[in-house]
């Protein structure tokens, strides 16, 4: 790994653990100086960026949750349960999500992550329990959610129209978000002709387009390459720092250290 890449990754890892920018840059500069002077490989001296970031954070005694728990609640769920044909999918789920928080939703296949997100989005009704929120919501489903026969800017125009954005505003905002995910929108292809990862980026951008208060993202960076996945988190951290909240379901382990709260679902029967 190149020193530059290592340092960049290290910095992201520190950020993901909620280290404030000033401390972060101090630690990174000091580390860079050491690597420079010792003339050795960062991997040899410090190990993997994520591991080293974890030991730095632990040495600093910083909490990994930077958002104060007394932020106002943006969404709460109380004792949610859902069954399909008498087999239970979700059982007594509670959520208390605050402004500026990212909640990671983890669990094996069939543990009800998608069902829970759909309930929270108000798309399906729970059998028991209540969801309480007044937040505006952007939802990115795991599959579908885009029209295979429409081009990217046509999607932007359609989704933007819901928020009252005109075509130019929606396109400009969409291109800005796409740029942050390392994608330059061109309009030569319809959604069905985009690669899997790019179609996923489009779907994600559509969820973020009107800057809703809360993002509900179902496996949002599945199919992203490493760089894009990193960009996704950067985008989400900025989102959170601006007071936005998000619930992200994922199979990737990295979600554990990058989120502020974890909710682990287990297959129920």
């Amino acid at each position: 790994m190149k020193t530059e890449t290592w340092l960049q990754k290290f910095s992201f890892e520190l950020e993901s653990r909620g280290l404030d920018p000033k401390r972060r840059s101090e630690v990174v500069v000091e580390t860079a100086g050491f690597i420079d002077e010792s003339g050795t490989e960062p991997l040899e001296q410090f190990g993997f960026p994520s591991d080293y970031a974890a030991s730095v954070i632990s040495a600093l005694g910083e909490t990994t949750n930077p958002s104060p728990p007394d932020n106002p609640t943006i969404m709460s769920a109380n004792q949610l349960s859902k069954s399909y044909r008498s087999s239970s999918v979700l059982s007594q789920i509670d959520i208390d999500l605050r402004e500026g928080q990212i909640l990671a939703l983890i669990g094996p296949n069939g543990s009800g992550k998608t069902t829970l997100l759909k309930i929270l989005a108000g798309m399906i009704q729970p059998d028991h329990g209540t969801v309480t929120t007044s937040a505006s919501i952007g939802y990115c489903p795991q599959i579908g959610g885009i029209n295979p026969n429409l081009r990217p800017t046509e999607h932007l125009q359609l989704f933007g129209a819901g928020f009252g954005l005109d075509k130019d505003q929606a396109t400009a905002e969409g291109k800005r978000l796409a740029g942050q995910l390392d994608w330059e929108i061109t309009d030569r292809m319809t959604a069905s002709e985009l690669s899997g990862g790019t179609a996923q980026k489009l779907s994600l951008i559509l969820a973020m387009l009107g800057r809703p208060d809360l993002l509900l993202l179902d496996e949002p960076y599945q199919g992203f390459d490493n760089k894009s996945a990193q960009r996704f988190w950067e985008l989400l951290w900025t989102w959170r720092d601006n007071g936005g909240a998000a619930i992200v379901s994922s199979h990737s382990e990295d979600v554990l250290i990058r989120a502020d709260q974890i909710l682990e679902l287990e297959p129920t029967s």
């Binding site: 952007g138 939802y139 489903p141 959610g145 029209n147 009252g164």
Partner: peptide, 10 residues
């Protein structure tokens, strides 16, 4: 497939 998402956008 788009309808629920679009409803959320208003």
């Amino acid at each position: 497939t788009l309808r629920p998402r679009l409803s959320l956008t208003g």
